[in-house]
Simulated assay, not measured.
Amino acid sequence: MTEASRLSVTSAQPAKMTSQASRSPSSNYDTFLRLLATQLKTQNPLNPVDSTKFTEQLATFSALEQQITTNKKLDSVLSQFKAFSITNAAGHIGKTVTAIGNTFAIGSGGTSDTKLTYSLSGTAKDVNLSIADGRGNIVWSGKGETSTGNHDFVWNGKDIKGKTVPPGDYTLKVAATDANGKAVATTTTLNGKVTAVVSGQGITLLEIGNTKVDQSAVIRMTA
């Protein structure tokens, strides 16, 4: 292979690598610059990089730079939005809310600051209630009210054997069937006073005692 041919091959390689670098703009920005500079240094003066290809590389570099700038601006906007969201949600503190959900927290002594209500869309013949711990194990089960409408659920925080359950998250499950054995639609809600607001992983959570509720799940709020 002649020297001119070797240099021509060398100068052609960065063009392929730059397309790979553009896949992750923030981490490969410097790599792109180094490859472009190397290409200019090693090209054969008697056989320089084709002007069309070089223009394409510069256009790629410009697009990469703009993408990084856009990403930084989007991160800034997202950060401001999160700050606004948690500030706005802070107005819920002290308010009593009702939110769609069935997972609640139990504190020491088997107590909870969260009240649960389940609703039946129609009259049921049989309603089975159960409580599962954070691992999905059923720790308590019993029968529920069968009439149409809302029913408050009260649990003393004790398992099937009468022992107080340890602190943690628990989930209420409701299974209702009518006289024909068909399932009756149910809805479970959490009720309580908001004590704090926290933000994480792009969502804003309202704390009802130890129970965390997604702000978007709130369907009712009272002073």
Score class of each variant (00 low, 15 high):
T31I: 04
F32H: 10
F32S: 12
F32C: 13
R34I: 08
L35W: 14
L36C: 15
A37L: 08
T38I: 09
T38K: 04
Q39M: 04
Q39T: 02
Q39F: 00
L40F: 10
L40T: 08
L40I: 03
N44D: 12
N44H: 00
N44P: 04
N44G: 01
L46S: 12
N47Q: 05
N47R: 06
N47I: 06
D50T: 00
D50S: 01
T52L: 01
K53V: 03
F54Y: 00
F54I: 05
T55A: 06
T55L: 01
E56H: 03
Q57S: 11
Q57H: 01
Q57M: 07
A59W: 07
T60G: 02
F61I: 04
F61P: 00
F61V: 02
L64D: 09
L64H: 12
E65D: 10
E65V: 07
Q66T: 09
Q66P: 08
Q66L: 07
Q67M: 11
Q67I: 04
I68F: 11
I68V: 15
T69P: 13
T70M: 05
T70C: 07
N71G: 15
K72E: 07
K72L: 14
K73R: 06
L74Q: 05
D75A: 15
D75W: 08
S76Y: 09
L78Q: 06
L78A: 13
S79C: 12
S79N: 15
S79K: 10
S79I: 00
S79T: 05
Q80W: 05
Q80R: 07
Q80G: 08
K82R: 13
K82M: 11
A83W: 02
A83S: 01
A83K: 00
S85D: 11
S85W: 00
I86G: 15
N88K: 13
A89R: 04
A89D: 12
A90P: 05
A90G: 10
G91L: 03
G91T: 05
I93E: 06
I93D: 10
T96Y: 15
T96L: 08
V97W: 04
V97S: 02
T98V: 11
A99C: 01
A99H: 04
A99P: 02
A99M: 10
I100M: 09
N102H: 15
N102W: 12
N102F: 14
T103G: 06
A105Q: 13
A105P: 12
A105H: 01
A105D: 08
G107T: 05
S108K: 15
S108R: 03
G109R: 02
G110W: 04
T111Y: 07
T111I: 11
T111R: 10
S112R: 02
D113M: 08
T114G: 14
K115H: 13
K115C: 14
K115G: 11
T117L: 12
S119W: 02
S121T: 11
S121H: 14
G122A: 14
G122Q: 13
A124T: 04
A124H: 04
K125F: 10
K125T: 14
D126Y: 05
D126H: 09
D126E: 09
V127A: 08
N128E: 15
N128C: 12
S130G: 11
I131C: 13
A132M: 15
D133A: 07
G134D: 13
R135N: 12
G136F: 09
G136M: 09
G136V: 05
N137M: 12
I138V: 15
V139R: 01
V139M: 05
V139L: 03
W140F: 13
S141A: 15
